[in-house]
């Protein structure tokens, strides 16, 4: 009997035993009840956001209204601009981060390189020791990034932890693949572009998701370094909006043709509409990358 059949047999008998022990007992019923209850609690707050953004007043569990007024008001306030900033920062930032992380991880996967130890130490040390808030603030300011769009991209361009994940993936990369390409006359750079990157898609997809989420959700860096409110990304604009919703309403009423009576929707609806706009786009990316990500990253990081 060859190994494959043996493995198959083990699989079948395992699933039989699995059926015997799992799936039908009272424990399973309890488990499902527990999970459904917890999942419902976890989902509930998001459900209230959705109904509230369409006009249902706070405190109602069932939807009582459907209006797009909240979204209209929010767009009038200038969410469109902040949205564009967030999209551009996320796209450019993710691309740049991915580029730097990939070349760093690929080069560092060559352990035979003279000085490898020092280069590795130089990078890893930053994971465990940093200058802290003020030295960082002064450095970024000194680099001329104050009040610049680039402040949302450059200072956080590399996350060392992501290099580490990608590195463990490249380290297990079959050497034979690279070697055979070398024999065929491919240069180092061609190998990276034509062979290593295309066959590393799972880890690259996961890392790009991580970077995209970080960029999209960053409100702290712009809060520290942006003075000009027209440069604000969506998250920071949302943060301000949540604090000063009254001002926004009166401003909108003042500058626009919106009749006073029309603003008669709950303030919460505006806030929740803004929350929807700030969170739906990044969640929409997740399913596309999900298939890569289960097998890609985590397996790599464990071996690390």
């Amino acid at each position: 009997m060859d190994a494959a059949t043996q493995h198959n047999q083990a699989d079948t008998s395992f699933s039989e035993s699995r059926i015997a022990t799992r799936g039908k007992s009272r424990v399973d019923l309890l488990l499902h009840l527990l999970f459904i209850l917890v999942a419902a609690c976890a989902i509930f707050p998001f459900y209230t956001v959705v109904i509230s953004s369409f006009g249902t007043p706070a405190g109602h569990v069932l939807p009582t209204a459907f209006t797009l007024e909240g979204y209209k008001q929010i767009i009038q306030y200038g969410v469109g601009r902040a949205f564009t900033v967030s999209v551009l920062v996320t796209l450019v930032g993710t691309f740049m981060s991915l580029f730097l992380t990939t070349i760093a991880a690929y080069a560092l996967s060559k352990k035979g390189m003279p000085g490898w130890k020092y280069l590795m130490g130089f990078i890893v040390f930053t994971m465990f020791f940093g200058g802290g808030l003020i030295p960082y603030y002064l450095t970024v300011k000194g680099a001329g990034l104050f009040n610049s769009y680039w402040v949302m991209i450059l200072p956080s361009a590399i996350n060392t932890f992501y290099i580490w994940i990608m590195l463990s993936f490249f380290r297990d990369y079959p050497v034979s693949l690279e070697e055979s390409a070398k024999i065929d006359g491919a240069g180092d750079f061609t190998i990276l572009l034509r062979i290593v990157i295309p066959t590393s898609m799972p880890v690259i997809a996961s890392i790009s998701l991580f970077y995209a989420v970080d960029r999209w959700n960053d409100w702290y860096t712009p809060m520290l370094f942006l003075q000009d409110t027209t440069k604000y990304p969506l998250q920071l604009m949302l943060k301000n909006m949540l604090a000063n919703i009254g001002q926004i309403l009166s401003m909108n009423a003042g500058i626009s043709s919106v009749a006073q009576s029309k603003i008669n929707i709950p303030q919460e609806s505006l806030k929740m509409a803004a929350i929807m706009i700030a969170s739906v786009p990044i969640m929409a990316v997740y399913p596309f990358l999900q298939k890569y990500f289960a097998k890609g990253v985590m397996i790599g990081s464990i071996k690390g």
């Binding site: 760093a104 690929y106 390189m113 130089f122 940093g130 802290g132 361009a157």
Partner: peptide, 28 residues
């Protein structure tokens, strides 16, 4: 290994500017 050193140049610059200069800044 020259190609790999070349690849690491922008990475080392990044860490020097945004991690090691702030580290010097702890003298504050």
């Amino acid at each position: 290994y020259r190609m790999y050193y070349l690849l690491l140049v922008p990475v080392v610059v990044y860490y020097a500017v945004f991690s090691y200069i702030p580290m010097y800044g702890v003298t504050l």
